[in-house]
Computed example of a mutant assay.
Amino acid sequence: MEKDREAGAPPVRLAFRFGYLGDRFGGSQVQAEERTVEGEFIAACIRCELFTDFREARFQTGGRTDRGVHARGQVAAFTTHAPDRAIKALNWQLPPDIWVNGYAEVEPPFNPRYAARSRTYRYYFPPRGLDLHSMADAAQIFLGTHDFSAFARIQGKDPRRTVHSIRVAAEDGLAFIEVRGESFLWHMVRYMAASLLLAGQARISRDDIARHLETGEKCCHTPAPAFGLVLWDVDCGIVFAPIPPDSRTERHLGQLRDRHAVMERICSVFEESIG
């Protein structure tokens, strides 16, 4: 698409796949007193004159992340009369710690939160001193549908969730837990990661995790730190056309992959917090 649609043309609903480094955000959801991912994304759209009111444009994302949590494959959608400008200009208007890397035209009712078939998270940590085989074995306890009261902050929500897949692996000098499900409770993946880290340190067993899952008694006093968590993918059944990354985007993708110094803090912070 070489130019914006002609004046008077019907608006177009666009979905964007995007990522961000969560270190300097107070979470993803718009908040009046905090710098947030959605707040910066909406501000960039307004600077590009893609819309003037995010509510009228029905700006929506595929889910929320907490303070300090990162994303690789989050999805945002909004309606605009200037789709070509959106595709070309958003990366220039977004701050350095947010980038878009794919887009698609979607149907007018599309809402990424409700269209999401599954969400995938990764929790990264340094593999030093951890038995990854024991962690991988213990992780299988979480597969299927369970009451996750022992591994989340419920806040009045239905504690039953379904984990479609989970694995423990290592790449580029870091280990990670990757878990996929339709939806997750608050801090659920971080509590799961905390318990698996303990299993990797031989401080709890596979059977201990199974017992806590069955009884609902908390397995850990605190979730694993937020800065190790990445929203890896939101699957809305969309094929995204790629937006070629600029040098800035490549740099930040590299930072997301190569966070050795930050990840070295995870075990020590976690160990201190559980004492």
Rank of each mutant, 00 (worst) to 15 (best):
V269Y: 10
T215G: 10
F125K: 02
P109N: 04
D84Q: 14
A226T: 08
F151K: 07
L256N: 11
M135C: 12
R35L: 04
D131F: 10
F18R: 00
N101K: 13
R257C: 14
E214K: 15
E49D: 10
L185G: 01
A175L: 03
A224Q: 08
E182G: 09
A152G: 10
H164I: 01
V106F: 07
E214Y: 11
A44V: 00
D207I: 05
P242V: 10
F78P: 03
R58D: 12
S28K: 00
L213P: 07
V100T: 13
Y114K: 07
A89E: 13
S118A: 14
G27F: 04
P96E: 08
T36G: 02
E34T: 03
G62S: 14
A138L: 04
Q74C: 03
A226F: 11
L253D: 10
A152T: 10
R128F: 13
I141K: 12
R180G: 00
R35E: 01
S205W: 12
R259D: 14
P112H: 10
R160A: 08
D158V: 03
A9Q: 03
P10C: 00
P109S: 10
R85N: 09
S273A: 15
Q155K: 15
M192C: 01
P126G: 06
Q29T: 03
K218L: 14
F41L: 12
T36D: 02
G27T: 02
G173P: 03
E40R: 06
W99D: 06
T215S: 15
Q93G: 01
I266M: 15
A104M: 08
A104R: 09
I87Y: 11
T145Y: 09
S273M: 10
L174R: 05
A193L: 06
A77C: 10
R55Q: 13
M263N: 14
